[in-house]
Design a protein around this nucleic acid. Structure first.
Lengths: 191, 191
DNA sequence: AGCCAATCTTATCCTAGATCAATTTTTCTA
DNA sequence: TAGAAAAATTGATCTAGGATAAGATTGGCT
């Protein structure tokens, strides 16, 4: 479990000192998040972040018609939670739900902020992660310049096995179309 | 000009020490960016950030059909440029164009990074700005859960005078619809 | 194995927004 | 200030995707 977290960190920061990795250990706790449970609810302040060792999550909001809209997915080796909210104490704009039983390593907002202040390597790591997240958010919105079909293809190219792990109606929600439309679209692109 | 920048900083960070504000002065340069000129081009690394004292910019990308798509606007009191790119040296995913003659205060990537390392208040300020930008990016994509008409209303509520400053076909591009559709949509919502 | 619920597909019809084309209005610019 | 270019509107027609409804599959559970 920790090995996977360390690999993840080293992939982002190849120079992360080995001894600093070990310093992280006491701050993390291994947990199972059961399928369908909410890790975070809209309006709540995120007080825990989780590194997904195994599993799958959806982030979602509700539009003015009361319909759910999936803003993103998170899989193995993703961080789950609202890092921003943990630092600034701002309430979350999204809810996060486990789509499977997920095995995670959690860290409290308190410990997270402590590490951020007291471990340069950790702060650098988070800074990089955050930059990446920002970029993803920008990409996400510009994808709406594409047709639904293109958006679907883009999603597939990023997550080739997503159709095996995520129900199709959630994928449709992510794409901003109905499940029926996605079904037709898939039929068309197969033939 | 500087007064406006300082006010902007103090609005974000009320505790920004007065003396640290004055330390910023030598790093900024006052410039005019003429209408229709590109401040940054897709693929280039952003080597300058600008604080917009007066003016108006559009950020845009090109989709797979070769059509321009506006990802955001920036007005007075906005920072223009790719802060991320300036830190990490990553090439820009967007182009930035001035929609009017713009009066700005620029800072080079070098000075920017220097301040980030050597001025705690400045680093905190940027950190807050960045958190805000991230939030905006997330909001931007979730707005596509709304109808075009709603998206237009949301835009108007954020920038009530945008129709006076930005050509309608750019607003249409931002909304992800054609100028013709926006024209109809406006006609409908007026009556 | 067998049943109920969740998920996905298919068909029909409908609507928001696209496309194409022609004006009209506004804005530059010589 | 006239004339050209840019921007916005309007009309007619088309299409991607929505809504509704009915089946077909799949997947837990007991």
């Amino acid at each position: 479990m920790y090995k996977q977290l360390f690999e993840h960190i080293k992939k982002t920061c190849p120079n992360y000192p080995e001894e600093d990795l070990n310093l992280l250990l006491p701050y993390f706790e291994s947990k199972i998040i059961t399928k369908k449970s909410l890790f975070l609810k809209v309006g709540d302040v995120c007080n825990t972040a989780a590194f997904a060792v195994k599993g799958c999550f959806r982030y979602f909001t509700t539009n003015s018609e009361g319909e759910e809209f999936i803003t993103r997915f998170a899989f193995n080796d993703y961080w789950v939670g609202e890092i921003q909210g943990m630092i600034h104490g701002t309430p979350s704009m999204v809810s996060i739900e486990a789509l499977e039983d997920c095995s995670v390593l959690t860290i409290s907002a308190t410990d997270y902020n402590y590490l951020l202040q007291n471990s340069r390597p950790f702060a650098d790591f988070i800074e990089k992660k955050f930059a990446k997240a920002f970029q993803s958010a920008e990409i996400r919105s510009s994808e709406f310049a594409e047709s639904a079909e293109n958006r679907y293809q883009i999603l597939l190219s990023k997550f080739p096995d997503i159709t095996q792990r995520v129900p199709q109606y959630y994928i449709a929600s992510y794409l901003g179309i109905t499940p029926e439309s996605l079904s037709r679209l898939r039929k068309k692109s197969i033939s």
